[in-house]
């Protein structure tokens, strides 16, 4: 097609797409991040189970620490909720005109769910549990 897609990274950041653009970008970044750390977790668990490797065990200890899980929770919950918004709007395309409102609704659901998860994680982290 005649579409010029040779747009640099910073030129792309200056594009004023607003909330939906940032949601799209966060969706991609969180997706790639999930492939990285869940993929590493799968390999590490496999080697931990099969060979009892110390290195794999260390990776899983880091992965399961509550500090890392705070980031994991953000990434997973955001990706899930944003994907649900995309799927619902694609199933009923006439609601696409309300996509900015849907994005606000998504953040209003995200904040209590993520806040509760982080509160529990910090509580367990500070009291010596996991």
């Amino acid at each position: 097609m005649g579409l010029n897609r040779r747009v640099g990274f910073f030129a792309g950041l200056r594009y004023r797409g607003g909330g939906p653009m940032w949601a799209w970008m966060l969706h991609r970044v969180t997706g790639i991040a999930m492939i990285l750390f869940v993929g590493t977790h799968i390999y590490a668990s496999f080697f931990m189970q099969q060979t009892g490797s110390d290195f794999a065990t260390t990776i899983n200890i880091v992965y399961e620490s509550w500090i890392f899980q705070v980031f994991v929770a953000f990434i997973v919950i955001f990706h899930g909720l944003n994907g649900m918004r995309i799927g619902i709007l694609d199933l009923w395309p006439r609601f696409q005109v309300f996509q900015r409102e849907a994005l606000w609704l998504q953040w209003f659901i995200f904040i209590p769910v993520y806040g509760l998860t982080v509160a529990i994680l910090i509580q367990h982290g500070l009291t010596g549990g996991f």
């Binding site: 668990s45 189970q49 899983n60 399961e64 549990g129 996991f130």
Partner: peptide, 19 residues
């Protein structure tokens, strides 16, 4: 606790986590 709940939610498998 929470990690056990997460583990049972997504991957209830005997020996793949430590926590």
């Amino acid at each position: 606790d929470l990690p056990t709940l997460m583990r049972w939610t997504f991957f209830p498998n005997p020996n793949h986590v430590i926590n």
